[in-house]
Design a protein around this nucleic acid. Structure first.
Lengths: 337, 337
DNA sequence: CTGTTAGCGCATTCAG
DNA sequence: CTGAATGCGCTAACAG
């Protein structure tokens, strides 16, 4: 069964195709009377506009690709929701793709989205190799980077000041008296994570500490979820001398760390302070309530969508919107033992 | 700048358009030699297939609509991820739309998706009025319901046995000695919620309790998030006689309730037991760890996508896949005071 | 104000 | 194996 086209509507209403087209696109150019007739006809034949045909004719696409590391991750889920909301306001819809930090998945997603002819792509890139994204943009599909500065690429970007986030973490812990701090790191060279590490170093250095000694990086293997973070606890406890605080790359990892610490019988924050990142919605309800660095997720998504929608409008230029993270002090951090 | 079409590829390669089309769709029907030439040409002119044109010609769409209550809600985020994964396996992509339980938003989303010509729609409906979905399906866009049985609609559906979930909750609490139980209810008549309420009633009745007395419904206004749930605590504490347990419609609501209880100085579970629903990833890390009913989110999404992809294949018939929830006992429930 | 026509990019004829 | 022709549904430009 093929859908009714503008043609059968025209027949049913006894007018020409272009009249039907007009009631659709230039309603005021057609008599109230005929318009009514056409609208009735559309209803009776069950007419539905054909997006593919419109797009082929050059109408702007109503779909936007959202290529994220993991849409089920609460952080990205909220970012995606922000995108979705802003896009909906503009009559657009989000096609969301999760890459799980895999280049091939990212490449494939970008390819498919380009073939679809999306209005643009909001991308939280898997790594700093942005060639594919730059080429995509070069071929005419606007790209806005999310949580990645994209320095020197001429791509618009929405970021959070990760270095500042790292500093915030370092300052807070140093102020509490910590002198040796573990931080969880993943294999991927996500710029947001390297930024935070840099911030940690700066913060420690500013406090006059010997950074190489004061900061111990603990690797967490992919997919770097709760389970992997929990397993990493053994490695932080084994470090000599033992660190008195651990900084996590997100709140889910902090959940894992807390779990591991509980299992090992280490008190939080008495025996070890734990610092999260993101301030997801349940961070305040953990045991103990999690001290963390808040990122404005929803706004991040909205801003990214905003930037994308602005592309192609007259006076458009490369732009980076940067948000500032915020320290939220709760009970999982305290003075060292 | 318009994208290169099959035509410029043909020119660049010195062959006809149909030859190019063939290397794309019937690679073996063309000489290895010419194929190479054409492929080179595609690379140099930067050719990208035009999805709109293909779809117009009748190619099956690669997009599927996922219309969910709230994609940022951890439960749906995971369901969506399951959908996305299964769809990706089939070379498809998910267009996700959140309705926030608003009919107009649902209607609008379905409309837009139909115009786009999506391969189908995975819908967690706002209410039991499924007319729009049924009509959509009638017009040829397959619809699979998620978390809604869709009785009598001939629509495929993926559900969780909500009545059983409610029973599980009732049985557990009654076994602990509770005789008067509050349950949080929302305004929306979501079938999953009415199912659970029914299960609660059955469970209590089976234990020989006077249901109208034993079960007190406490309304939570939209958007029924953490904040609203927290505010509802006052109402459960004010009920006379005071209930000794409260069952929540999801884990986020439980977070709110726990927060409210803490604020009111009520011990959990000493003064009040709290039961969640969903078993989201952080439920085990709350203070106290949350007793809850687990739903298989990812599988739910996968199964829905599976059903959708199966539609239109030869021997297809109406089907409902039903999953079974599971009680996860932790520390937020215990004997009444 | 309404009707006619051409062509968007592609895949599928059919004739060479 | 290749080339030319047709039409998918729609809209913009033009003719009436």
């Amino acid at each position: 069964m093929r859908r009714a086209s503008i043609r059968q509507v025209a027949e049913a209403a006894g007018v020409s195709m272009s009249t039907v087209s007009n009631v659709l696109n230039n309603p005021d150019v057609v008599t109230v009377d005929t318009r009514r007739r056409v609208e009735d006809a559309m209803a009776t034949v069950g007419y539905v506009r054909n997006g593919a045909a419109r797009q082929l004719r050059g109408a702007p696409s109503v779909t936007v690709g959202c290529v994220l590391l993991d849409s089920a991750n609460l952080f990205y889920a909220q970012v995606a929701r922000g995108m979705e909301d802003r896009l909906a306001d503009a009559g657009c819809m989000a096609i969301v793709c999760s890459t799980d930090v895999r280049v091939e998945r990212e490449t494939r997603a970008l390819q498919m989205l380009e073939e679809l002819g999306v209005r643009g792509v909001l991308l939280s890139p898997v790594s700093s190799r942005l060639d594919a994204a730059v080429e995509l943009a070069g071929r005419g599909t606007p790209v806005v980077l999310v949580d990645h500065p994209g320095a020197g690429t001429r791509l618009c970007a929405v970021t959070v000041d990760d270095v500042r986030g790292g500093e915030l973490a370092a300052e807070h812990l140093v102020a509490q008296g910590h002198r040796r701090i573990a931080y969880l790191r993943t294999e991927a060279d996500l710029p947001s994570l390297v930024g935070r590490a840099e911030g940690l170093r700066r913060g420690l250095a500013a406090a006059g500490l010997d950074v190489p000694w004061a900061l111990v990086g603990v690797p967490v293997p992919p997919p770097a979820g709760v389970v992997e973070a929990e397993a990493a606890v053994a490695r932080v406890l084994a470090a000599e001398p033992r660190p008195t605080a651990v900084v996590c790359f997100n709140d889910m990892a902090a959940v894992g760390v807390m779990r591991g610490l509980h299992a090992a019988g280490v008190d939080i924050p008495g025996g070890m302070s734990v610092l999260g990142y993101d301030d997801v919605v349940f961070a305040s309800e953990l045991a103990p309530a999690l001290t963390t660095i808040r990122q404005p997720t929803h706004e991040l998504g909205r801003a990214a969508a905003e930037l994308l929608l602005a592309e192609g409008r007259p006076g458009h230029r490369h732009k980076e919107v940067r948000f500032t993270p915020e320290l939220v002090v709760r009970s999982s951090t305290g003075p060292p033992p």
